[in-house]
Write a protein that binds this DNA or RNA. Structure first.
Length: 214
DNA sequence: CAGTCGATTCACT
DNA sequence: GTGAATCGACTGA
């Protein structure tokens, strides 16, 4: 079948109640819906990264639970938002059984609904493919900040987010490699997943330790 | 309690 | 390709 309409059936919480490495590639092609007073935005996911809890040196959960990362330790299907570099937010979906602290960073996607609204929030984007090309750009396009930390994808009206089945990417179209910007032991595993040849996927960058300011 | 640095992006050379 | 921006969380003393 060619150009079949995406399946708009909502996923269920069970989808996220699996090991994060199983969920992450399965998210490619799914549709994240972000509702707001300004209107809806829909994003077809094209790039994600898995963060595997307290055993993963690249994860915020590596050193245990804190006020910031508490949502990661909660039930699956919730949104974990963190603030970084003094100016950006990034958005994750919590996976795995409660207590396991797994999460998938949403790194990039294609805006399929609400591009006009996203353009107003992403004035530096040179074209629509850049609207959500990168995790902080994605969060900016969707107007996501720490006030949405902990939001439930299955909150039925209480929540600005939901997620639809979409058109999942075929297994042979799922590419994988090391995570972007993650250094040290955290770069050992190919835990970044993206849709092959998709123009909205962000470029890979190796981790660069910041030099000291004088 | 001061020092360090980040799951990044943008402007500029 | 390089460096600045910018601030909160975390670390270790």
């Amino acid at each position: 079948m060619i150009n079949a309409a995406p399946d708009r059936t909502p996923l269920t919480r069970d989808f996220f109640d699996r090991p994060v490495l199983e969920v992450a590639p399965d998210l490619l092609g799914r549709i994240l819906v972000r509702d707001s007073d300004d209107g809806p935005i829909e994003l077809r996911l094209t790039e994600v990264e898995a963060y595997a809890g307290e055993a993963d040196p690249g994860s915020h959960a590596f050193r245990g639970q804190t006020a910031r990362n508490a949502v990661m330790f909660g039930p699956p299907g919730h949104v974990y938002v963190y603030f970084t570099y003094g100016m950006w937010h990034c958005m994750n979906l919590v996976c795995g059984p409660e207590g396991k602290a797994g999460a998938v960073l949403l790194r990039a996607g294609e805006i399929t609904v609400g591009a006009e609204l996203a353009r107003k929030r992403r004035l530096s984007a040179r074209n629509d493919k850049e609207l959500a090309k990168g995790p902080a750009r994605l969060a900016t396009a969707l107007d996501v900040d720490r006030s949405l930390d902990g939001a439930d994808l299955f909150g039925d009206g209480d929540s600005p987010f939901s997620i639809l089945t979409g058109t999942p990417v075929e297994a042979d179209q799922v590419s994988e490699g090391p995570r972007t910007g993650v250094g040290g032991d955290g770069s050992a595993h190919p835990w970044r997943f993206w849709t092959a040849n998709d123009p909205t996927v962000s470029p890979y960058r190796a981790h660069v330790p910041r030099r000291r300011r004088t």
